[in-house]
Amino acid sequence: MSTGKLICNDLVKKYGKKEILHGIDLELEPDRIYGLIGRNGAGKTTLLSTLTAQSPVTSGTVTYNGLPVWENQDALDHICFSRELNPLIGWGANSLKVKDYLKAASIFFPHWDKQLAERLVQDFELETKKKICKLSKGMMSMVTIIIALASKADMTFLDEPVAGLDVIARDAFYRELLSEYTETGRTFLISTHIIEEAEDLFEETIFLNDGRILLKESTQALLERAIHISGKAEDVDAATTGLAVYHPEKLGRSKAVTVLLQEGQCIADGYDLSSQPVNLQNLMVALCGPDSQHSVPDSQQNTPDVKTGGRKGR
């Protein structure tokens, strides 16, 4: 089981004058599976790149087990960020054959599991003599999955690992991931847009919105306190007074909202309302969608559980 924590403090990343990540504070514990969720352009890949020293930070620090990760082989030996391969790029790493790509990985990752890599190649029926740029999107995802799993790194980051994979391959990937996690206690952080499928995997979920961490919480606890409420608009408003309300939708006299309850809070009784649990995907729409305007009572702002935008002065 891995023991090190990956911690980043006040991480800022700029591309030119544009600030992509705005002072991120994040702590990744060993022996967990994290889900990283956010819209396109929220900064997920940039965050993963900077956490793994593939991209330099503009300011802030990233450490693994107390060691800075930037250009530090001792820290990097415990980390693997298997990047999404871009089918539109025919040069660089994409110009290599799959077998050469895997060979390179086997040399650089100190705990590389050759047998696991070979088995996954067979399971996924991957053609290793093909150049990466000639692979389909799904096959490229298989390559990134093989790298991530066979690297045996304590902290493994996957960016859109199931993009383009068919349902059978996705199922195989989830099973492999769980089996690897159970056997080794490695930490995985998975960035994905296929949230509904993956939510059962995530022990903790990190919501990233516009370069800020909106939420980082146990998935189960989060879903337990997220409720979708609908009914007459005045009843909904009255019942949710003082609660953190997201994503209001109005249809005639009816209204629906998503509520994130804090400890000790509950929906007021005595109103004719319909309430339903919210899954992770709908919660993301509520928190990060275009209509995600929310009202949060003053008493709850900037609590540890709900970071509402954070660092506005930046």
Partner: peptide, 17 residues
Amino acid sequence: YMIMTSLVIPFNCTRKS
């Protein structure tokens, strides 16, 4: 340099190496 930067750095090779 064009090829290797996108190949070996993601495999945790430091830039110095």
